[in-house]
Design a protein around this nucleic acid. Structure first.
Length: 282
DNA sequence: GACCAGGAGAGAG
DNA sequence: CTCTCTCATGGT
């Protein structure tokens, strides 16, 4: 089986990367192998110190998908500006932002609102099983994530058994809007962060938080700083004690948090967000 | 049952 | 533009 040797001066932590909640389609087996469906392929991968062993993908794909081409230590040095993020970095050093397929990532974060991670994972798996293409790998059948037309083509009630709750019309509506996902992805990718954000928020079911997650995880807009209930809590405790605690997060408050983060952590504030999120207690 | 989870949209002011 | 209220699901 092919292997890939990691450079000692460019750290990587596969477990932290796949279990931090940025991606929903990977499973870790007790023997240490991770299995995942990425685009039209099924792959597995494991890490033993500085060796990655994998199958189902090429070395360039693995390198690109896990962002192994980036100088992580330089990124972490740039965001390491206070004791809170310093502790988060120490705890999860080697965590990398993945380059996720854009369309799947978009639907995933539409499905994520007001939900916990196990529930989101079940929804994505359910959509793939119902509308995706079967792919066999090691005598097991997996399902690719479906093209938007496969979802929209089944009508507005086609998603009912996926149990998305009130998000069902959002996924259907966005599947109707994004008829050509490759072209759509290229167009978003050319836009600067704020402009791309406004574009994404025109789609059904995508507000500020989902847009920031999609831009960070699928479009490598590292100045995005998604604010969910956990990040809000951390920001209140460690950075912005003046913020209200009880009321639901307003749009103004969201903007004040992400603006502060952009100025405090710099152009890689999205990485700071993911380290803080991974280090959360709860 | 109450409460929470990687929130967003419709409607009112 | 800004605040408020409602929304469906599953786990604890």
């Amino acid at each position: 089986m092919p292997t890939l040797t990691l450079d000692n001066d460019n750290s990587f932590n596969l477990d932290a990367t796949l279990s931090c909640g940025q991606v929903f389609r990977w499973d870790r087996r007790p023997d240490g192998w991770w299995y995942g469906v990425v685009k039209d392929r099924v792959m597995k991968i494991r890490q033993d110190v500085n060796t990655l062993t994998y199958s189902g993908a090429t070395a360039p794909f693995v390198r690109h998908y896990f962002s192994l081409d980036l100088d992580l230590d330089a990124i972490l040095a740039s965001i390491d500006r206070d004791t809170a993020v310093h502790a988060a970095i120490r705890k999860n050093r080697g965590l990398r932002l993945i380059r996720q397929p854009a369309w799947e990532c978009t639907v995933s974060y539409i499905c994520s609102t007001n939900s916990n991670i196990p529930t989101i994972r079940r929804r994505i798996a359910s959509i793939a099983e119902k509308f995706g293409e079967p792919v066999e790998f090691e005598n097991t059948v997996y399902y690719t994530f479906p093209h938007p037309e496969a979802i929209s083509g089944s009508g507005e009630n086609g998603l009912t058994e996926c149990r998305l709750g009130y998000r069902e019309p959002y996924v259907f509506g966005t599947s109707c809007s994004v008829t050509d996902p490759e072209c759509w992805e290229r167009r978003i990718r050319t836009l600067p962060y704020e402009e791309a954000r406004r574009e994404l928020m025109k789609l059904n079911g995508i507000g500020p938080k989902a847009a920031d997650c999609i831009l960070l995880f699928a479009f490598q807009k590292y100045e995005a700083f998604p604010v969910d209930v956990w990040i809000r809590r951390i920001m209140q405790e460690c950075y912005l004690p003046g913020l209200a605690t009880d009321s639901p997060l307003s749009n103004r408050e969201y903007d004040s948090i992400r603006t502060f983060a952009r100025e405090h952590f710099g152009e890689y504030c999205g990485w700071a967000q993911e380290y803080l999120y991974a280090g959360r207690e709860g």
